[in-house]
Design a protein around this nucleic acid. Structure first.
Lengths: 152, 152
DNA sequence: GTCAGTGCAAAAGTTTTGCATACAG
DNA sequence: CTGTATGCAAAACTTTTGCACTGAC
């Protein structure tokens, strides 16, 4: 259902390793959060993510605070990136999906994912030229999608 | 002081034209806001922008609400883009500076601007391929700058 | 058993709205 | 004059924190 990035088992192992290294604990909440992000191809806001976690835990309590705390943790560790575009609010995405970028329609908000090898390579070169150690990138092209373009 | 984009007079004229078209009014607050953005090369948050406006108006009142309202207006009109990266908060930037992109240090938050012709061209081609009418883009590479890389 | 993690509720921060007044057209 | 824009204050959201209790190691 999901384009293949890193296998979940590997992802999970990496996550555990990071936690161990920082003497943090591996809890069921953290696992479920990671798994949910892994299985979701959409871009969720923290609140939407929290709602899904609530559903998964069949009614059990999931605090929004924990979601934020865990997301910050994951973001620091580079597992997750958050992007925010205009008024659309903060959206979360797993970082180690294969590199891809976004084209966002300013009118209907549709997000189209794309990928271009040439751009990826150019980015690496640019980073090197500035002595920058690259860990990720976000590229958002925006404008109007085919549909909304026609309506204008 | 500022890399040359569109000349301010032209920018201003465009702004007035947009306002006229939507039967909106050209107020001193709107002018000062635009001018301030034009003259500032940094990336400001709405609140920082508001503070600058207050200074410029020598103590006169500038409401944060007006800043937000005007920014939303400008963003809708494509004059301004807001980018938000991780925890660093929303930052504003004039859209019609010459195209350039950002490299952001996850540790110290430094923003390095860069530009690459090849990437720019590739983006246009990709948009065309998807029937997407491109009006702008944001590209953020992130990782650790030279300095912070060394400290790790 | 110890110490980090959790949920909850309160707090802090950010953005939007309602309303009376000010001012551009 | 008319109606949009403004500043202020309140409201609505979003994100973070404090605390007592739970649970991983």
């Amino acid at each position: 259902m999901r384009e293949v990035g890193v296998e979940y088992d590997i992802l999970l192992a990496e996550f555990k390793a990071i936690l161990k290294k920082s003497k943090l604990k591996f809890t069921s909440q953290r696992e479920t959060l990671l798994k949910t992000l892994y299985e979701t191809s959409e871009h969720l806001t923290p609140e939407q993510l929290c709602d899904r976690l609530k559903m998964r835990s069949n009614g059990a309590n999931v605090g929004i605070a924990t979601v934020y705390r865990t997301l910050n943790l994951l973001e620091d560790a580079g597992f997750v990136t958050s992007i925010s575009f205009g008024t659309a609010g903060k959206k979360i995405e797993l970082a180690n999906k294969p590199h891809h970028d976004h084209m966002i329609c300013k009118k209907c908000g549709e997000i189209i994912e794309f990928r271009d090898e040439g751009i990826e390579k150019a980015q690496v070169l640019i980073a090197e030229a500035h002595g920058f150690r690259l860990t990720g990138h976000i590229q958002q092209l925006y404008g109007f999608c085919k549909k909304c373009s026609a309506e204008n």
